[in-house]
Design a protein around this nucleic acid. Structure first.
Lengths: 224, 224
DNA sequence: ACCTGAACACCGTTCAAGT
DNA sequence: ACCTGAACACCGTTCAAGT
């Protein structure tokens, strides 16, 4: 009935107790459940039932764990169609990237930061988006600018969605608390929207704005 | 010649040694110089030549220091014209907000996160942007969507600019390091841009895309 | 009211010691 | 090669004690 005490030394197994995937899986669970602040080497080790220092034999440091986590999440991005109407492919890419980010709200900050730091994994997932804007007939600089604008928009959106999950009408309450004369337009506009909610959601509208803006920009650049 | 030793007790002055603004100013210096990771109560106290615990008499905790910092930065946003062509006002707002964020690269993450968490200060600065899109004649839902898309874009852009300051052609090198068959479009597009750099910078293009997209969306919604 | 200093419960990481 | 455990240099914050 005595709890077995772990002893140092190489484990007598053909397979080691600890593996990189097992560590990352436990870390992702921890972050999903308790937030990025709860991810510490000691807590993670506790969850794996192992000495904190054992982890360092598989991942060099905590930063490597976090970027490993982000890489794992990138690898779950849903596939995007490689043919069909280009605008539909842009929409599909935006949805897939957003879903990836929002699947792990506690990791959004790291996902977004890594995406803008342009790690290999982050660069790779952008290819279908470039291909879609390229298929639209945009000139190379326009492809880069349109894809960048869309990525930045989704990054900003994901950050907002994760930081301030919407319940009821928090924006309305917040606006009511501020001095009316400082934000007349915001109050009026928000009141109008509250009376008659928009038929298209905020995310889709942002994507549509960028799709139409990119085509307009390209048309204008080539002389209309 | 002996360095004077600090003694506990209320200081015999008409003005206290420590004030909230003095603490925030020292904290901002610390963050600007050494990064957000260098901001600790002990280091900050050292810089103020004070016991770490003294700070807690002016700010309740470290989180309050960080949000105080963000608030200070918001308060430095350059004014945006309240009349003139609406698109020009949108451009001016975007530049002012971007400049605010990039003025303190080590604080960008906090600025952006706070902006999406919609603190009072973050809401207040958006009023001129709403006013500009309202002046453009957009319907209320379109105003909200266009302003949101622009804010999210600039947030994403600022994050990218701070996380990966561009030197030389890092994107080109990164693309060269990846398997060519995985990113054919990105390679081709980037090579074309490298040969003939775009005349308009990435940030301005993003803003322009959103301005044009918003007007196109509004025109389409009203039946044309 | 405002400042100090010891103490508590944590961190990430290095290093030597086990098998 | 892989796991352990003590140790080092940090954290944020509470609490009692000074004036």
């Amino acid at each position: 009935m005595t709890t077995e005490r772990r002893r140092p030394g190489r484990p007598h197994r053909d397979r080691p107790l600890l593996t990189r995937p097992a560590i990352l899986a436990a870390a992702l669970e921890l972050v999903d459940e308790a937030g990025i602040g709860a991810l510490s080497m000691r807590r993670l080790a506790g969850r794996l039932d192992v000495d904190p220092m054992s982890i360092y034999h598989h991942l060099p440091n905590k930063a490597a764990i976090v970027s490993g986590l982000v890489g794992t999440v990138y690898s779950t991005m849903a596939p995007v169609p490689v043919d069909g109407p280009w605008a539909e492919r842009v929409r599909a890419w935006a949805r897939a990237y957003r879903d990836l980010a929002l699947a792990h709200p506690n990791l959004v900050l790291q996902i977004v930061t890594d995406s803008v730091a342009a790690s290999d994994a982050a660069v790779l997932i952008s290819e279908p988006l470039y291909a879609a804007f390229d298929a639209a007939g945009l000139a190379p600089p326009d492809v880069v600018n349109a894809a960048g604008a869309l990525v930045d928009f989704v990054n900003g959106y994901a950050l907002a969605g994760a930081a301030a999950p919407v319940e009821g009408d928090p924006m309305g309450e917040r606006l009511d608390a501020l001095p009316p004369d400082r934000i007349p337009t915001m109050r009026r506009v928000h009141a109008a929207v509250a009376r008659e909610p928009a038929e298209r959601d905020f995310f889709s509208s942002g994507v549509e704005i960028i799709i139409r803006g990119a085509t307009a920009l390209a048309a204008g650049a080539t002389g209309r």
